[in-house]
Design a binder for these strands. Structure first.
Lengths: 72, 72
DNA sequence: GTGTGACTAATAGTCCGTT
DNA sequence: TAACGGACTATTAGTCACA
Protein backbone atom coordinates (compact mmCIF):
# COMPACT_ATOMS: atom_id res chain seq x y z
CA UNK A 1 0.00 0.00 0.00
CA UNK A 2 1.44 3.36 -0.99
CA UNK A 3 2.06 6.15 1.47
CA UNK A 4 -0.55 8.40 -0.04
CA UNK A 5 -3.15 5.68 0.02
CA UNK A 6 -2.65 4.82 3.63
CA UNK A 7 -3.25 8.41 4.67
CA UNK A 8 -6.17 8.71 2.31
CA UNK A 9 -7.88 5.59 3.52
CA UNK A 10 -7.26 6.61 7.11
CA UNK A 11 -8.82 10.01 6.49
CA UNK A 12 -11.80 8.49 4.79
CA UNK A 13 -12.27 6.11 7.66
CA UNK A 14 -12.21 8.98 10.16
CA UNK A 15 -14.78 10.87 8.13
CA UNK A 16 -16.96 7.81 7.83
CA UNK A 17 -16.91 7.15 11.57
CA UNK A 18 -17.37 10.83 12.39
CA UNK A 19 -20.52 11.01 10.30
CA UNK A 20 -21.74 7.72 11.70
CA UNK A 21 -21.52 9.37 15.11
CA UNK A 22 -23.39 12.39 13.81
CA UNK A 23 -20.53 14.77 14.54
CA UNK A 24 -19.26 17.81 12.67
CA UNK A 25 -15.52 18.36 12.30
CA UNK A 26 -15.92 21.06 14.90
CA UNK A 27 -17.60 18.75 17.39
CA UNK A 28 -15.08 15.98 16.85
CA UNK A 29 -12.19 18.40 17.26
CA UNK A 30 -13.63 19.41 20.60
CA UNK A 31 -13.98 15.83 21.79
CA UNK A 32 -10.50 14.91 20.59
CA UNK A 33 -8.90 18.08 21.90
CA UNK A 34 -7.56 18.95 18.46
CA UNK A 35 -8.12 21.97 16.25
CA UNK A 36 -11.08 22.02 13.88
CA UNK A 37 -8.98 22.62 10.79
CA UNK A 38 -6.60 19.88 11.82
CA UNK A 39 -9.38 17.30 11.70
CA UNK A 40 -10.16 18.50 8.20
CA UNK A 41 -6.53 18.14 7.16
CA UNK A 42 -6.45 14.57 8.44
CA UNK A 43 -9.64 13.68 6.60
CA UNK A 44 -8.17 15.14 3.42
CA UNK A 45 -4.92 13.22 3.98
CA UNK A 46 -2.84 16.40 4.14
CA UNK A 47 -1.01 15.45 7.31
CA UNK A 48 0.99 12.42 8.23
CA UNK A 49 -0.66 11.99 11.60
CA UNK A 50 1.25 10.70 14.61
CA UNK A 51 0.25 7.82 16.84
CA UNK A 52 -0.75 10.04 19.76
CA UNK A 53 -3.26 11.91 17.64
CA UNK A 54 -4.53 8.71 16.06
CA UNK A 55 -5.32 7.56 19.58
CA UNK A 56 -7.04 10.85 20.44
CA UNK A 57 -9.30 10.55 17.43
CA UNK A 58 -10.04 6.90 18.11
CA UNK A 59 -11.07 7.74 21.66
CA UNK A 60 -13.25 10.62 20.49
CA UNK A 61 -15.00 8.30 18.06
CA UNK A 62 -15.45 5.63 20.71
CA UNK A 63 -13.49 3.05 18.75
CA UNK A 64 -10.15 1.32 19.13
CA UNK A 65 -7.12 2.18 17.04
CA UNK A 66 -7.56 -1.13 15.27
CA UNK A 67 -11.05 -0.08 14.26
CA UNK A 68 -9.59 2.89 12.43
CA UNK A 69 -7.77 0.45 10.16
CA UNK A 70 -10.63 -1.92 9.60
CA UNK A 71 -11.40 -1.74 5.93
CA UNK A 72 -14.39 0.51 5.52
CA UNK B 1 -5.23 4.58 27.43
CA UNK B 2 -2.60 7.19 28.22
CA UNK B 3 -0.29 8.62 25.60
CA UNK B 4 2.77 7.09 27.15
CA UNK B 5 1.16 3.68 27.31
CA UNK B 6 0.08 3.68 23.71
CA UNK B 7 3.63 4.38 22.56
CA UNK B 8 5.04 1.87 25.00
CA UNK B 9 2.72 -0.92 23.98
CA UNK B 10 3.37 -0.13 20.34
CA UNK B 11 7.11 -0.28 20.87
CA UNK B 12 6.86 -3.53 22.74
CA UNK B 13 4.76 -4.99 19.98
CA UNK B 14 7.32 -3.97 17.37
CA UNK B 15 10.09 -5.54 19.40
CA UNK B 16 8.09 -8.71 19.85
CA UNK B 17 7.38 -9.08 16.15
CA UNK B 18 10.92 -8.12 15.19
CA UNK B 19 12.37 -10.88 17.34
CA UNK B 20 9.76 -13.31 16.11
CA UNK B 21 11.09 -12.60 12.64
CA UNK B 22 14.64 -13.10 13.85
CA UNK B 23 15.73 -9.59 12.91
CA UNK B 24 18.12 -7.18 14.62
CA UNK B 25 17.15 -3.50 14.90
CA UNK B 26 19.67 -2.86 12.17
CA UNK B 27 18.14 -5.41 9.84
CA UNK B 28 14.63 -4.15 10.46
CA UNK B 29 15.69 -0.58 9.86
CA UNK B 30 17.10 -1.63 6.52
CA UNK B 31 13.93 -3.45 5.49
CA UNK B 32 11.73 -0.59 6.63
CA UNK B 33 13.94 2.09 5.12
CA UNK B 34 14.27 3.84 8.46
CA UNK B 35 17.31 4.77 10.46
CA UNK B 36 18.93 2.24 12.79
CA UNK B 37 18.69 4.43 15.87
CA UNK B 38 15.11 5.33 15.10
CA UNK B 39 13.90 1.75 15.45
CA UNK B 40 15.47 1.65 18.89
CA UNK B 41 13.75 4.89 19.86
CA UNK B 42 10.39 3.52 18.77
CA UNK B 43 10.85 0.33 20.74
CA UNK B 44 11.77 2.39 23.81
CA UNK B 45 8.72 4.63 23.23
CA UNK B 46 10.83 7.74 22.88
CA UNK B 47 9.26 8.94 19.66
CA UNK B 48 5.69 9.60 18.60
CA UNK B 49 5.78 7.71 15.31
CA UNK B 50 3.84 8.89 12.25
CA UNK B 51 1.36 6.80 10.29
CA UNK B 52 3.60 6.47 7.25
CA UNK B 53 6.35 4.93 9.36
CA UNK B 54 3.91 2.69 11.18
CA UNK B 55 3.02 1.32 7.77
CA UNK B 56 6.70 0.94 6.79
CA UNK B 57 7.38 -1.09 9.91
CA UNK B 58 4.27 -3.19 9.43
CA UNK B 59 5.36 -3.99 5.88
CA UNK B 60 8.88 -4.83 6.99
CA UNK B 61 7.49 -7.20 9.58
CA UNK B 62 5.09 -8.78 7.11
CA UNK B 63 2.03 -7.85 9.10
CA UNK B 64 -0.86 -5.42 8.70
CA UNK B 65 -1.13 -2.18 10.63
CA UNK B 66 -3.96 -3.72 12.59
CA UNK B 67 -1.62 -6.51 13.68
CA UNK B 68 0.63 -3.92 15.27
CA UNK B 69 -2.22 -3.01 17.60
CA UNK B 70 -3.35 -6.50 18.41
CA UNK B 71 -2.78 -6.83 22.10
CA UNK B 72 0.26 -8.98 22.56
C1' DG C 1 -19.92 23.42 8.30
C1' DT C 2 -15.75 22.92 5.66
C1' DG C 3 -11.49 24.04 2.64
C1' DT C 4 -7.30 26.52 2.23
C1' DG C 5 -2.80 29.16 2.54
C1' DA C 6 0.22 30.90 5.60
C1' DC C 7 2.62 30.81 9.57
C1' DT C 8 5.58 29.57 14.23
C1' DA C 9 6.77 26.19 17.67
C1' DA C 10 7.62 21.70 18.37
C1' DT C 11 9.16 17.30 17.32
C1' DA C 12 10.01 13.52 13.93
C1' DG C 13 13.70 11.43 11.96
C1' DT C 14 18.84 11.18 10.41
C1' DC C 15 23.66 10.91 11.17
C1' DC C 16 27.76 10.98 13.67
C1' DG C 17 29.78 8.59 17.40
C1' DT C 18 30.59 6.15 22.35
C1' DT C 19 29.37 2.90 25.84
C1' DT D 1 23.56 -6.28 19.38
C1' DA D 2 21.49 -2.54 21.42
C1' DA D 3 21.28 1.87 24.37
C1' DC D 4 22.32 6.37 24.36
C1' DG D 5 24.28 11.25 23.18
C1' DG D 6 24.53 15.69 20.60
C1' DA D 7 23.67 18.06 16.65
C1' DC D 8 21.33 18.62 12.80
C1' DT D 9 17.36 19.00 8.92
C1' DA D 10 12.72 17.90 7.45
C1' DT D 11 8.20 17.61 8.70
C1' DT D 12 4.25 17.75 11.74
C1' DA D 13 1.42 20.13 15.30
C1' DG D 14 -1.43 23.54 15.96
C1' DT D 15 -3.63 28.03 15.03
C1' DC D 16 -5.58 31.89 12.26
C1' DA D 17 -8.22 34.78 8.93
C1' DC D 18 -10.83 34.26 5.12
C1' DA D 19 -13.17 32.15 1.36
Amino acid sequence: MSKEKILKSFGERVRELRKKNGLSQDELSFKANLHRTYIGMIERAEKNITLINIEKIAAALNVTIKDLFNGS
